[in-house]
Design a protein around this nucleic acid. Structure first.
Length: 270
DNA sequence: CACCACTCCTGCCCGC
DNA sequence: TGCGGGCAGGAGTGGT
């Protein structure tokens, strides 16, 4: 379940190993991802040079001469660098070769996507409508305050709406709301300014801590799948229904919001 | 618009 | 030990 920190850590780990290198061969073993991987992908990519690896929301952008390969890891996707050919596992659907070095995509649940796009990546239909990056300066209490005005929806699904703020998935949404001491059921539009400040700070803090935790394993990331950094992070509420809150000791509760589980501490979050 | 439910898929966990 | 069933979740899509 890569969220923004896992995707960013993946980006940092692969960029230095593929930027400036030329794609020699592309192997699609199973094209059945979120959308079918185009059959002409190998022909489209061969001979192109990766200039840089960027990220927008949870999308990785392999910016090449003449176009961008847009990757999304979905629920279970991971990328790894191999220095030499290795037998692919059952879910290793795609290899991009740079000489003997390989970038290999594994995705058991196949919710990920691989798309080729010519022209500016920002103009792609999947990227056009995305909201603000939570780790950028523009994302602040004042912006959260303005974005929430008039919104009737609960703050938890609001936070997870990628058209508003990107990169905050189910786990970090719950964790951030705990950090801000806000009840996930609160209607977004009713949050006072100070609570918006707390929320913006909590989102940044949660994501940055996850980044730091993942960053610490970056050295071995050659072999990594995004989980490594991810499961190192001790959660305050997510996945802890019925267990004692780490702050007040009260029982953590689990509810459903928009077909998603939400965990929170009724004692700490108001 | 704003909001909501549905959908894709496989690994994992539970109960029998 | 095996098997069926339920659940998890990102985010696009389509309905109200």
């Amino acid at each position: 379940m890569p969220e923004l920190p896992e995707v960013e850590i993946t980006r940092r780990s692969i960029e230095p190993r593929i930027a400036g290198r030329t794609i020699t061969c592309v192997t699609v073993r199973d094209p059945r991802l979120r959308w079918p991987v185009p059959a002409r992908l190998p022909r489209l990519l061969a001979g192109r040079t990766v200039q840089r690896v960027a990220r927008r929301a949870k999308y990785l952008l392999l910016e090449c001469d003449g176009g961008t390969l847009i990757l999304h890891l979905g629920m279970s996707g991971s990328l790894r660098i191999l220095e030499r050919q290795q037998d692919p596992g059952r879910h290793d659907h795609l290899d991009i070769a740079f000489g003997s070095r390989l970038l290999r995509l594994r995705d058991p649940r196949r919710f990920g996507s691989v798309l080729w796009h010519t022209g500016g990546p920002a103009q792609h239909r999947l990227l056009r409508g995305l909201g603000v990056e939570p780790l950028e300066e523009a994302f602040c209490g004042d912006l959260v305050y303005r974005l929430t005005r008039g919104r009737q929806t609960a703050i938890k699904p609001f936070l997870m709406n990628q058209a508003i703020v990107v990169g905050v998935g189910n786990i970090y949404a719950s964790e951030s709301l705990f950090g801000a001491r806000i009840d996930p059921r609160t209607r977004a539009g009713t949050l006072a300014r100070t609570r918006c400040e707390r929320l913006a700070a909590a989102v940044k803090g949660t994501l940055n801590r996850a980044l730091a935790a993942g960053g610490s394993t970056l050295r071995d990331f050659a072999a990594a799948d995004g989980r490594q950094g991810y499961f190192q992070l001790e959660t305050f509420v997510y996945g802890r229904a019925g267990e004692p809150c780490r702050v007040c000791g009260g029982a953590v509760r689990e509810i459903r919001q928009g077909q998603r589980s939400t965990c929170f501490c009724p004692g700490c979050q108001r």
